[in-house]
C-alpha cells in the first residue's frame, strides 16, 4: 500500500514569500496512530518551514528508526530524506553536512533512538556542534516495538502493562547543556504556539539545536501514572518564557511589557523574542539553565521553552576549516594533485 495525500487544495490558499502554499511543505499521509503526538510535531515542522519560506529542496531530513523516525516521510516531500539505522542518524547527518554545508539538516529521532541505542552518537554530535536541528519526539517508550520503557521514562512511571520503571530517567536537555550544546529547547507536541517559533529559531541557529519535544504515545504510554501522558504534561507544564520568532526584516509587531521581554538576535539578523514567565530567566546563561532544569525535575515540572542559546557559535565546519565551497561540488581540478606532484612524491620514496 502506498500513501499519497490528495493534492487538491483550494486555489485561494495563502502563499509564503516564495509563492508556495503550505501543501508544498507537506509529506505523504501519516501511518501513525490517530492522536499520536509525533503527528502534531510533523505539522509544526511543516508550518515552520512554510512560514520561513524555505526552499524545500534545500533541506535534508534524516532520522533513525522508530515511529518518530518515520515522520520525515510525513513532511517536506520535496526534500531528500534518509531513514537510516536505529540510533545512528547523527553520524549520517554529520557525513551529509560535511559533503554539503549549504543545506539545512533536519534530524528527527525518538527517545529510544537517542537516549539508548544512539546515546553514543548523540553526545558526540552535540560535542561537534554540527549545524543541524535535532528534534527528539520523546514519548518515554519504544512505540514501534510496542511500548517497552525507554531510558527517558521517569522513575516510578507505569507502563501500559502496569510495570513500574525502576530506573532514573535520562534528561536529554540537561545532558545537552552539560555537553556544551549551543541551543537547547524543550516543548510539548500539543503546544504549537510554542513549538513553531522554537523550530524556526533552531533552523536559523548556526550550530547544533536540540528540541526535546514531549510527545505522548497514545497507544502505549498515555496512561495515568506516565509522566509523558497528555494529562500529566498539561498539568505540569512550566514554561521558561513564551517565545516568538521574528524573521529578519519583519517588524516586531507584538509589544511586550517593558522588563518582561528579552530579545535574542540570531546570527542572520532575525530575532527570538522571549516573554519571561520565570523569574531571573536568562537563556544565555548555561549555569542558571542547568540549575533550573534540576529544580524543575525535583518539582516534577516540565520546563519548556528556549532553555539555552549561544547565538554566536562555532560549528563543526568552522572548527575543521572546511572550504566555503561544498565538498560535493568539487572536481578533479580542485581535488587531484596531478602527475607532476606524484612524480615528486615517487622521488621521495626512492
Amino acid at each position: 500500500m502506498t500513501y499519497i495525500k490528495p493534492k487538491f487544495r483550494h486555489p485561494s490558499l495563502p502563499k509564503n514569500d516564495l509563492g508556495y502554499t503550505k501543501t508544498v511543505y507537506e509529506g505523504s499521509l501519516s501511518t501513525l496512530c490517530a492522536g499520536c503526538g509525533h503527528d502534531s510535531i510533523s505539522a509544526a515542522i511543516v508550518q515552520s518551514c512554510y512560514e520561513l519560506a524555505l526552499e524545500p529542496h534545500r533541506i535534508a531530513k534524516l532520522s533513525g528508526i522508530g515511529c518518530s523516525s518515520k515522520t520525515p516521510a510525513y513532511f517536506l516531500s520535496q526534500s531528500h530524506g534518509f531513514n537510516s539505522v536505529h540510533g545512528r542518524m547523527p553520524s549520517v547527518a554529520t557525513g551529509a553536512s560535511l559533503a554539503n554545508k549549504d543545506l539545512i539538516y533536519f534530524g528527527v529521532s525518538g527517545d529510544g533512538d537517542t537516549a539508548s541505542i544512539g546515546m553514543g552518537q548523540f553526545v558526540h554530535v552535540v560535542r561537534r556542534n554540527l549545524n543541524m536541528v535535532y528534534v527528539v519526539m520523546n514519548n518515554g517508550c519504544y512505540g514501534l516495538t510496542k511500548g517497552q520503557d525507554s531510558a527517558t521514562a521517569d522513575e516510578g512511571s507505569k507502563s501500559k502493562a502496569g510495570s513500574v520503571n525502576l530506573f532514573n530517567a535520562i534528561d536529554l536537555p540537561s545532558l545537552a547543556l552539560e555537553l556544551g550544546a549551543s541551543f537547547v529547547a524543550q516543548s510539548f507536541s500539543g503546544d504549537k504556539a510554542q513549538l513553531i517559533p522554537l523550530i524556526k529559531a533552531a533552523i536559523k541557529h548556526p550550530g547544533f539545536a536540540l528540541i526535546n519535544v514531549i510527545s505522548p504515545c497514545v497507544t502505549f504510554n498515555n496512561n495515568p501514572g506516565s509522566t509523558k501522558a497528555y494529562d500529566y504534561v498539561r498539568e505540569h507544564l512550566d514554561a521558561t518564557s513564551t517565545v516568538d520568532f521574528i524573521p529578519l526584516q519583519e517588524e516586531i509587531s507584538v509589544a511586550y511589557e517593558a522588563g518582561s521581554t528579552k530579545n535574542i538576535e540570531l546570527h542572520d539578523g532575525s530575532s527570538l523574542q522571549l516573554n519571561k514567565l520565570a523569574t531571573n530567566w536568562n537563556p544565555e546563561d548555561r549555569m542558571s539553565a542547568m540549575t533550573a532544569m534540576q529544580q524543575a525535575k525535583l518539582d516534577g515540572e516540565i520546563l519548556t521553552g528556549l532553555i539555552f542559546i549561544e547565538p554566536e557559535t562555532t560549528d563543526l565546519h568552522a572548527m575543521i576549516k572546511t572550504s566555503d565551497t561544498p565538498l560535493n561540488t568539487m572536481d578533479e581540478s580542485q581535488l587531484c594533485p596531478g602527475s607532476q606532484a606524484l612524480e615528486a612524491l615517487n622521488e621521495e620514496f626512492r
Binding site: 547527518a93 557525513g95 551529509a96 559533503a99 553514543g120 558526540h124 572550504s323 565538498l327 560535493n328
Partner: peptide, 25 residues
C-alpha cells in the same frame, strides 16, 4: 578541500561515510 573526522567508534565512522556519499561527496 577535505574533511577528516575521528569518529566516536566504527559505527559512526561508516555512518558518516554513508551520509557523505549519499550527499555526493
Amino acid at each position: 578541500n577535505f574533511a577528516i573526522v575521528q569518529a566516536e567508534d566504527e559505527l559512526a565512522a561508516i555512518g558518516m561515510v554513508i551520509g557523505a556519499n549519499w550527499n555526493g561527496a
